[in-house]
């Protein structure tokens, strides 16, 4: 099985969300559904002393995240109908809509929040790695869209050389699902599990 992976360069990403919206347009996703989301992590504080001067320890960085097409996908592990699974040819984790009953176990199990249940369609929906484009020799839409050139896609073997397996906050430790996401972290990035590194834009990633 081929192992496709995403690469995310946190030192380039500006949090602009072009990836998210290019995906939404290509896959025709409406309000409330996104296959890729951009998280803002903000740490530290900015205070004003009695003399009116500022001191800051504030730092902030974005993380763009879709499905990581994990080697040990939590979504597939819990799927009662085997609708969720890895495509044997590409290794991409995809939903078989014919089998999916929309129970939502995958959405609850995935530590990255990738699958969501689309109530109108009655099944789970998520990033399929633009499988059709990839099969035709192109890259996923989000990768080709990035103005800052912070995203890439390829085989895990090739991308491993450019970053470490996803272990920046707010992502969970990679040991949970063995994600196919390799990351070059921003200077301000905190490691997975860092207590202070909370998601600062919860309204934007619903």
């Amino acid at each position: 099985m081929r192992r496709y992976a995403f690469y995310f360069d946190g030192s380039r990403c500006t949090g602009c969300k072009t990836c998210e919206f290019a995906c939404k347009d290509y896959h025709d996703l409406d309000v409330g559904t996104a296959f890729r989301r951009v998280y803002e992590v903000t740490t530290g504080e900015t205070v004003r002393a009695d003399d009116g001067t500022f001191a800051t320890t504030c730092a902030s960085y974005p993380v763009s995240l879709a499905c990581n097409h994990c080697d040990d996908p939590a979504c597939a592990r819990v799927c009662p109908t085997r609708a969720m699974g890895k495509d044997p040819a590409s290794g991409l984790v995809v939903v078989d809509e014919g089998r999916c009953v929309g129970c939502g176990y995958c959405a609850m199990a995935c530590p990255y929040g990738a699958p969501r249940v689309d109530r109108d369609r009655g099944c789970s929906v998520k990033c399929d790695g633009c499988a059709e484009r990839v099969a035709a020799g192109s890259r996923p839409v989000c990768v080709d869209a990035c103005p800052a050139r912070a995203l890439d896609f390829g085989t895990a073997g090739a991308l491993r050389a450019r970053g470490s397996q996803a272990s920046v906050a707010p992502l969970p430790p990679p040991g949970l699902t063995r994600p196919n996401l390799y990351v070059r972290p921003a200077a301000a990035a905190r490691p997975s599990g860092d207590a202070e590194a909370r998601v600062a834009n919860p309204l934007e990633v619903i």
């Binding site: 896959h27 996703l29 609708a83 969720m84 939903v95 809509e97 929906v125």
Partner: peptide, 12 residues
């Protein structure tokens, strides 16, 4: 195994 079937075209 399932096929990749969340294509734009199937949505359309």
């Amino acid at each position: 195994m399932p096929q990749a079937n969340l294509s734009r075209r199937s949505f359309l």
